[in-house]
Design a protein around this nucleic acid. Structure first.
Lengths: 199, 199
DNA sequence: CTTATCTTGGAATAGTCGTTCCAAGATAAG
DNA sequence: CTTATCTTGGAACGACTATTCCAAGATAAG
């Protein structure tokens, strides 16, 4: 008997993600969301709750749609160190060129905002961090099994270091950092972990 | 003949820095500034311009007062790698404990905000980045002259890598990252640059 | 003490914020 | 087609936004 939704919630959420991602969550108003999605305030508040819940939903979707596939690809890549290098090359390329150039990373950006202090949001940030570090760790362990790593390297600490490096790439790319500079920094870290220099 | 200011602009600017630093520039209103500083809107707009100019002034003062002294200390420290290690130990301590714990870094935070796209703001961000990288480079060159560095290390790229690590430390500390984890990540990077492990 | 000049307090501006509400519209079962 | 139930458009809400303005207060020179 009831009416059904006249829109696809996931499609709308993707538009919201893009909006928050590019222009910043705190500096984007509901009016902007209404205009970008085309639906009315009523539908927006009925489907998602207030802005805080909309932000959490958008952040969660970003994590599932943008981050997780890349993390899984990294963990599944059996090449070891070259897999990590490829991850960063694709990351820098995505951050500096193409459709989302200079947008940074929604998760990284959220770290610096006021709403990042909310427990609900922070939980997603930690989930993102743990997922990336775990993927880095897996890739490093593959590399170690293949004899690619320096003797005595703390794999857990190295995974954390590479994860931190990824955050910084996201951050600096938003301010216009050159791709070559970012890649050189990443490579310096990676070279310090390996036995012999590749490339 | 004219009247003089009834307050010290630098003292006021310090209060504004703290406000923007802790709570975020975009999410802090003029009303908050008025309340925190105790002076009126008239005086605020007469001394500094609008909010954009106030932000630029606060960011500049943060750079001069908080960042530059630390950068200069790093560049002047003749110990080489231990100097860099000490820099990060003090950084992590300041970010995770004490008066400004979990505030992150005002410059780092600004990277992720919408106002970071303005040319006037971005110029300060780049100035900050160049200053830190130059200090890192100086410390690394001291280390190289002392034979502390791995053969074939690209000092310029290594300086960029360490600078990026510092940004990530600032970012993650705001989200509640543990000091020990951050330090382990930093040390992994630093160990990759040195000939023999210290500590 | 007068006077010229700046500073200050505080009201008032127009605009935007997130949120709520209700009548009108759309849907699908009977 | 009727009817029950949800969705939708759009107006309205008070609270907040940055900014402006002006009369009143404070200062220091003459």
């Amino acid at each position: 008997m009831p009416d059904i939704k006249h829109f696809d919630p996931d499609t709308v959420l993707d538009q919201v993600v893009n909006l928050f991602w590019q222009r910043g969550t705190d500096t984007t108003g509901i009016a902007d969301v209404v205009q970008a999605t085309g639906l009315s305030r009523s539908s927006l508040y009925a489907s998602f709750g207030g802005k805080a819940q909309l932000q959490a939903a958008a952040l969660g979707r970003y994590l599932e749609l943008r981050s997780r596939p890349v993390f899984e690809a990294l963990a599944a890549d059996i090449r070891g160190v070259p897999a990590i290098a490829a991850f960063f090359e694709r990351l820098v390329a995505a951050r500096c060129t193409g459709e989302h150039a200079r947008w940074g990373c929604l998760v990284t950006n959220t770290h610096a905002t006021a709403s990042g202090g909310l427990p609900e949001i922070r939980e997603i940030l930690d989930r993102h961090h743990d997922a990336l570090r775990a993927a880095m760790r897996t890739a490093l362990e593959t590399a170690r099994a293949d004899g690619q790593l320096r003797a005595g390297l703390d794999v857990e600490a190295a995974a954390e270091a590479l994860t931190l490096q990824a955050y910084a790439v996201n951050l600096r790319s938003r301010a216009g950092a050159e791709a070559a500079v970012l890649l050189a920094g990443v490579r310096a870290v990676l070279d310090g972990f390996t036995t012999t220099e590749e490339r």
